[in-house]
């Protein structure tokens, strides 16, 4: 299905704004100026050919809710950490599990998995049969390895 910018109403009655990746930052900035000060959630959906990135925004003052959606073909989207601090860990989590690179994020590291983990588990092409083991090095940092006999 081709991605078309525009507005629609979701199955749950929420307003969905679809924008191109280039217009994402300007849309979110103008929404924040309108009072959407609570960035609730950032989600990545792997559609095989492209990745959908979904932002759930909420305004405490007017109690409105809006969903902003964009697509990326090279798994890169601009970071919104300068608008909402709550985007920090959300973006790190989505980078960790979905492999979306948020350009401009100040500290884009994995949040849950060890830093040298191979692959991003929520991708549809992730091979779950390829087992990785987690060990701890002498400095107390975790690392991932394919060798079950590794470690002390």
């Amino acid at each position: 299905m081709e991605f078309q910018p525009g507005e629609e109403k979701g199955k749950d009655g929420r307003k969905i704004i679809k924008v191109k990746k280039e217009d994402l930052l300007s849309t979110l900035e103008s929404l924040k100026k309108k009072g959407f000060n609570h960035l609730s959630l950032i989600t990545g959906v792997d559609r095989k050919d492209y990745i959908e990135v979904v932002y759930h925004l909420h305004s405490f003052e007017s109690n409105e809710y809006v969903v902003v959606k964009t697509v990326t073909y090279n798994s890169k989207v601009p970071s919104v950490t300068h608008l909402w601090k709550s985007a920090d860990w959300d973006e790190r989590e989505e980078y960790d599990l979905m492999g979306i690179e948020f350009e401009g994020h100040p500290d884009l590291r994995r949040l849950f998995l060890p830093q040298n983990w191979v692959g991003h588990p929520l991708r549809k092409d992730y091979n779950m049969k390829n087992v990785q083991y987690i060990n701890m090095d002498e400095d107390g940092e975790d690392y991932a390895t394919f060798d079950p006999g590794d470690g002390w």
Binding site: L97, L111, F112, L113, P121, L122, D142
Partner: peptide, 11 residues
């Protein structure tokens, strides 16, 4: 530092 109980329930 978190992730010690990670099971990836979403997957």
């Amino acid at each position: 530092v978190i992730g010690y109980l990670h099971r990836n329930a979403e997957k």
